[in-house]
């Protein structure tokens, strides 16, 4: 009697675990099936090479490039903002700061990641853009720059926290060897510690990129709604995520080609983040416990 009860419980618990697999299967099924019928109308070649994205206009073009370039532009700005700051924080906390400071500042930095993204969007639009306009006069009220910078601030803790973990995990003896030869902390940090922890730091950067690519609300609010094939950060751009939001807000007929575009855009986004995440898992696994 006791045995059967135990078995039933185990099955129930594993079923809950299976829900997560169903979720993945569901995501892939939904994206693949809807975009499959999209690609019966639009050729994959056009999708990947056409330089215009105008599914909601009369003159329809289905080139993903403008959305990709918008996504990459904002992501690049975000990483350029977050990377130097995040790495500096990580190095400072692991190589310079007193332990007590490190312990109290790390959770404080996590606050940056806890603020809802819609709030960051508001900041980008109403605070950062007007501020930037005061010295970049031809900056539009919607632009890639301000959205990217604010997104960068949001992902600082991702980079700083994971990189710091990687640096902190290095054996003390490595640092002592360097100090013992007369190196400063700066030299020890950047010539020994950062290279030795590079796999962990790279993982943190890749995860931050994946996060930035998938971020929606900041760009939907502050970066604009124009699919623009440009590298100029002052211009308005549309990211993949912002496009999905735009279509979802309007009333597009279910089953129409416009409706299916969001799944084609979605599968592109999914593939990008999936690849990045798995590269990071691979690096993590390959270099794990090098110093054990």
């Amino acid at each position: 009697m006791k045995r059967t009860g135990e078995k039933i419980i185990e099955v129930a618990l594993s079923t809950s675990g299976l829900i997560t697999i169903l979720t993945s299967v569901g995501i892939i099924w939904v994206l693949v099936s809807e975009s499959f019928s999209f690609f019966q109308v639009v050729s994959v070649w056009d999708f990947l090479t056409d330089t215009q994205w105008t599914p909601l206009f009369t003159q329809k073009h289905y080139g993903i490039l403008p959305l990709l370039s918008g996504t990459f532009l904002v992501t690049a700005i975000a990483i350029l903002t977050a990377l130097p700051i995040g790495i500096s924080i990580a190095v400072y906390l692991s190589e310079y700061a007193p332990k007590s400071f490190r312990k109290s500042i790390k959770p404080a930095l996590e606050i940056l990641a806890a603020v809802p993204t819609v709030v960051y969007g508001f900041f980008a639009l109403t605070v950062v853009t007007p501020f930037l306009q005061s010295f970049i006069p031809d900056l539009g009220s919607f632009n890639a720059l301000s959205a990217g910078i604010v997104m960068g601030i949001m992902i600082i803790p991702m980079i700083s926290s994971l990189s710091e973990d990687a640096l902190y995990a290095l054996p003390k003896s490595l640092r002592e060897a360097s100090y013992g030869m007369g190196a400063t902390r700066f030299q020890t940090a950047f010539k020994v510690a950062v290279p030795a922890a590079s796999s962990g730091i790279i993982v943190s950067i890749i995860l931050a990129i994946a996060r930035a690519i998938g971020e929606t609300m900041i760009v939907a609010i502050a970066a604009g709604q124009q699919p623009n094939l440009t590298a100029d950060p002052r211009e308005a751009v549309m990211t993949i995520t912002a496009y999905i939001v735009q279509v979802s807000l309007g009333d597009v007929q279910h089953g129409s080609i416009e409706y299916k575009t969001i799944f084609a855009a979605g599968i592109t986004l999914f593939v990008l983040t999936f690849v990045l995440n798995n590269i990071s898992f691979w690096i993590k696994k390959k270099y794990q416990e090098k110093y054990e």
Binding site: G214, T241, S248, I262, G266, F274
Partner: peptide
Amino acid sequence: AGVPSIIYGLL
């Protein structure tokens, strides 16, 4: 955990 939240919206 790495799937963007908007993809969950599509699901």
